[in-house]
């Protein structure tokens, strides 16, 4: 299940929902991304996340569908927040349930790599020295390429 929301989320609650009344799940891997207080410049005070309503949800759906096609998964929960966030705030969560840990680890890694390079979200950082839009990173693009042609 996918959510794009302004509200915070609780990883424990989300994981419980994912595994409730299930006895076939052997592994849950979850990743939580937090807002850092340093990025392209130090002293990040807040950031604003913009998305493209409609297309963003579809892009996340496509990424999740691709993960489900590649690995044997028993559940995925993906939450991405938008709006204004401050350092320490949770920004994104991916939880993947599978019978075996390897599938869950790889699928979670894959979903985050594709999310960072394919889902329409844009970050604007507000720092002591001004506001700027965060630039794309080559390392993210390289990370995403790991999953191609395999």
């Amino acid at each position: 299940m996918i959510s794009v929301q302004t509200a915070p989320f609780d990883v424990g609650t989300e994981q419980q929902v994912l595994t409730r009344k299930r006895t076939d799940i052997g592994a849950v891997v979850s990743f939580t991304g937090l807002v850092r207080d340093f990025n392209e410049r130090p002293d990040v005070q807040a950031l604003t996340l913009e998305h493209y309503p409609g297309m963003t949800e579809q892009a996340l759906q496509d990424i999740v569908a691709e993960a489900e096609a590649r690995w044997a998964l028993q559940g995925i929960r993906l939450i991405h927040r938008v709006g204004r966030l401050e350092p320490g705030d949770p920004i994104v969560m991916v939880a993947v349930a599978s019978a075996h840990r390897r599938h869950a680890f790889e699928a979670c890694d894959f979903i985050m790599d594709y999310l960072k390079t394919r889902a329409p979200f844009w970050k604007k950082e507000h720092t002591v020295s001004g506001h700027y839009w965060v630039a794309e990173r080559n390392t993210d693009i390289e990370d995403a390429k790991r999953w191609e042609a395999t």
Partner: peptide
């Protein structure tokens, strides 16, 4: 560029009522 919310290239054809969005590379996550 996305045409009707699907990533598209310059040669993508357009018709009446299409929604075309232009945006920079994504930076979510």
């Amino acid at each position: 560029c996305a045409v009707n919310q699907v990533m598209s290239a310059d040669d993508m054809s357009l018709t009446d009522g299409d929604e075309v969005a232009f945006f920079p590379p994504v930076t979510g996550g």
